[in-house]
Amino acid sequence: MRAKSSHNLPTDSTLLRNWRRWESGESRPDEFYAPIIAAAFDTVPAAFFPKARPNRDDELLSATGMDTLEFIGRLRMSDVNSATLDAVRITAERLCCEYAYADPHELHAEGTAWLRRITSLLDGRLTLSQHREILVLAGWVALLVGCVDYDLGHRAGAEATRRAADSLGREAGNPEIVGWAAEMSAWFALTQGNFRGAIDVSEKAMAGTTSMGVGVQLAAQRAKGWARLGDRRAVQTALDEGRAILARMGHPADLDNHFVVDATKFDFYAMDCCRVAGQDRLAERYAQQVIKDSTRPDGSVRNPMRVSEARLTLAVVAVRDRDLERAVEEGVAAFTAGRKSLPSLAWIAGEAAREIIERFPGDPRTQSFLEQLRSLNVG
């Protein structure tokens, strides 16, 4: 800590007493100590000491003066004012931030209910700016619902909601929502083995998104497609394009939002491409970093779906190293996360399974892994 601080610190015994209190949870490092501790571990304070999310009603009350019941009552009366729009905005943001860890069935039900409430406001008397903002907020929630639909294996519902989001984005003149709708189409295509389709969709959507986070994601989806078609140069070009967009963007304020892209997310994309390209050591390093970035200091996982794919990457690397025991261990661990994107998980696990079968076709442990894979309920 002393090496990372430009200020004089207390004696070692005092620091040790403080450390024990922090470690036990008795107290929390203040704004002076938190950056020093984070720097000692080569990270940022937000990674070690994330701000607790406020209670939903508290969040609404502090921003709008309304609790949830009053807010819903106003929506039913189509009473749209700045406070109502603020409350809708907070709710849409919260839903998008819960994507990574919330129970998908519950999130889908809540997201769908809010989408109906928000779109019902379009039937009321609105100013032009209110109309546009409601379209935008409905677009974000529709994107979220479509993603969760697909995670649950509901392909038809996901595609219908994706198209609705695209329509809302176009009507609102919001290129970011339109870009994410295209990104979802590329994601769907990839997990269904339509790699050329994913590349084409991503390329067409890139033009209007080169200064947005979704542009990074589109470049990554393109890279994933090219990786599976065996074109390493195209993979590198796409990844370089994504990195360039990321470098031009400021560091996002809220990394919990599913539709926010940051450097840690890009490591996740690069991991996939390196694994497919056979760059095992690099893929392994990326996977380890993804797991580290997705795990809180207390050991809980903030991004279980990313961790699952990272474990499958480690499984592939292990089987290529002729370590079937570790490969199966990592692979089975990938299936245990409570929060899953079933099509994505089945896709990557299927790729891992082919590697395992190729090298250890008759081994009972191979059969054990395949049985676990078959148990995934993908629509």
Rank of each mutant, 00 (worst) to 15 (best):
C147G: 09
L314T: 02
R20G: 03
R2E: 12
Y286H: 14
L60D: 00
L314C: 06
L69E: 14
R17W: 11
G73R: 03
L60C: 01
R162Q: 15
A40P: 04
I134E: 07
A46I: 09
N377E: 13
A40Q: 15
E98K: 07
F188E: 07
A46F: 10
T119K: 10
E159I: 13
K292V: 04
C274I: 02
R155P: 03
R125A: 11
A353K: 00
D280Y: 08
R196F: 09
W180G: 05
A156P: 09
W19S: 10
V301E: 01
L15G: 08
Q367K: 13
M249R: 15
R311Y: 13
R311A: 05
E371L: 06
A207C: 06
D256H: 10
G242T: 02
S13Y: 07
S5G: 12
I348H: 13
G299D: 06
C97E: 12
A238Y: 07
R359S: 08
E329N: 14
T112V: 07
A334F: 00
R243A: 12
S185R: 14
A283T: 00
E70N: 11
N8K: 15
A253V: 10
A238N: 12
D256M: 05
S24W: 08
Y33D: 06
W19V: 06
V378S: 05
L190P: 05
V216Y: 11
L137T: 08
G197M: 02
L373H: 07
A160S: 13
E23I: 07
V88E: 05
Y269V: 06
N257E: 09
G379F: 01
A100Q: 14
H7L: 05
H258I: 06
L15W: 02
E59H: 14
R56C: 05
R163H: 15
G153I: 04
P29C: 00
P304R: 07
V216A: 08
R28Q: 14
A39D: 11
G225E: 02
H105C: 04
G111W: 00
A333H: 11
N174H: 14
M66Y: 13
R326A: 13
D254A: 07
G146T: 06
E358D: 15
A219W: 04
S368Q: 10
M271T: 01
T264G: 10
I177P: 04
D298I: 01
G250D: 14
R53P: 04
V307Y: 12
V145L: 05
P175K: 03
D151H: 15
P343W: 02
M249T: 07
L314D: 08
V145P: 05
M206D: 00
L255K: 15
P364Y: 00
L376T: 03
G379T: 04
H251R: 12
T295Y: 08
F49N: 01
R359W: 03
D256P: 03
I118E: 04
A138C: 01
N8I: 10
A38R: 09
A156G: 15
P361E: 04
I291Y: 09
N257M: 05
E26A: 08
A287V: 00
T161I: 08
A83D: 13
Y150R: 14
